[in-house]
Design a protein around this nucleic acid. Structure first.
Lengths: 244, 244
DNA sequence: CGTTTCGTTGATATTAATCAACGAGCGTGG
DNA sequence: CCACGCTCGTTGATTAATATCAACGAAACG
């Protein structure tokens, strides 16, 4: 069972505000912002706030009013839901270029918490909503993102419903690798900023099972554990394993 | 482990074509069609095909080209993915009013199969796509649907990742009840057209565990098993159980 | 430099899967 | 119309996978 870790509260977010400048943003072409033209970015700049947020800080909490939507431009965010007795299920990890607020519901459906130090762009939801109403191509882009989100959710449902521990860990490593590849270069080295507990809560396992499974994969020479992550040794076998 | 049942192949679908008439469709206000005005419906009528399809028929298959999108107007559809060794995970059940094709990807991400006799409206994807491009309010409606889909996927992820057998069964019965309530009247009687195997494959369990769990809930007087479904006796306790 | 957190590994417990048997309902064909 | 074979759901006995409980070492942290 997952125990909720010590964490910063939403109240003491006290975020560092940076000089906002979407036009100069190096993540722009990765994110929802890719849907904007040059002149649209200027009006976007007016409503967006760029923030740096320390590790373990709650970005927003499940059930609270969704006054803002977010775009992640640096670092890793864990998205999770809690059961009344404290069991935690991580829905996903958001990285550079990811958008939080696809569903456009007026309450947050999960809690978002910084895994490491993150940078985000925060946009008032109403402002974002009215931009959506004005610009059909922005909505189209957003719906594209939603489509991908549905797809990866379904992958996760198959993983949780029908895969064993080894298959789950292999699938997590490979899918996380692909996510990273969209933003960094594709490599056999996979940095894992999140804890084993996070991975366990993402895969519906316990921390001990995750640890044992990674050890087994290392023993079987599919990967090696390196500081801050793992290195893939046998991509083919790992892929085969992950597919079930 | 789930074994794939005998089923009709996509080839022998030989669907019964009905007189198409969206304006007279009694499910219209429930479905994506609710986004159309009267005169838009006429142009919609021109591209839509209404079909009646017998039980166990494959509507479309995972991985094949998504040439059509579908709106379910009668009956129950199971949506599932198969692992190479035959393990099956049901992603969801579609009922009257549900739309299949939200993700708008060019290949089907799951197989759809009639549980009982169903009626569907079939729309060529390209035609639907061009209607989307013309009518922003249709895209908006579709994105709303996508938002709900993401939300229910996340519920399912929490269920599969962190709930035990009893909680899963209780949660399934209640969520399925709510789905039905959107379309029929809310009742303590829940018809279950799908088999125990379907429920098991939806909940990431085996048929035996589902059967035992339902028996236990009946023994504990939370429900009674009735022909073609169950009847809820203690909604409060069932709700509490399902929440974890 | 002590203290806490994190990851690992071992021993045991528990849940759900697997293997097995059986009875009810249903359709088919003799 | 009844008998047979099938499918489906249920229940029991046993096994297997993962959770839980526990201990420990290493790294991180104040």
């Amino acid at each position: 069972m997952s125990i909720v870790q010590k964490q910063n509260k939403p109240g003491d977010t006290s975020p560092v505000l940076e000089v906002p400048n979407c036009a100069a943003c190096r993540q722009r072409h990765l994110s929802i912002c890719a849907a904007f033209g040059e002149h649209e970015l200027v009006s976007f700049d007016r409503v967006v706030q760029h923030k740096t947020i320390p590790a373990k800080t709650v970005l927003f909490e499940q059930g609270t009013m969704a006054d803002f939507v977010f775009s992640v431009s640096e670092g890793t965010v864990r998205l999770f839901r809690l059961l009344p007795d404290g069991r935690r299920q991580i829905i996903g990890f958001a990285i550079k270029g990811d958008f939080l607020g696809t569903a456009m519901s007026d309450r947050h459906e999960y809690t978002a918490e910084a895994v490491d130090t993150i940078k985000v762009c925060r946009i008032p939801r109403l402002a974002f909503q009215s931009m959506l109403d004005e610009k059909p191509h922005l909505l189209k882009k957003l719906h594209e993102i939603a489509g991908r989100e549905i797809h990866t959710s379904q992958d996760q449902i198959v993983l949780l419903g029908r895969k064993n521990a080894e298959e789950r860990v292999a699938a997590f490593l490979l899918s996380y690798r692909e996510r990273l590849a969209r933003v960094f270069t594709l490599s056999v080295h996979i940095p894992l900023p999140m804890s084993r507990q996070d991975i366990a809560d993402y895969l519906g396992l316990t921390i001990e099972t995750v640890s044992r499974t990674i050890s087994k994969l290392a023993r079987d020479k599919l990967l090696v554990v390196v500081p801050d992550g793992i290195r893939i040794l046998d991509l083919d076998r790992l892929t085969q394993l992950s597919d079930g």
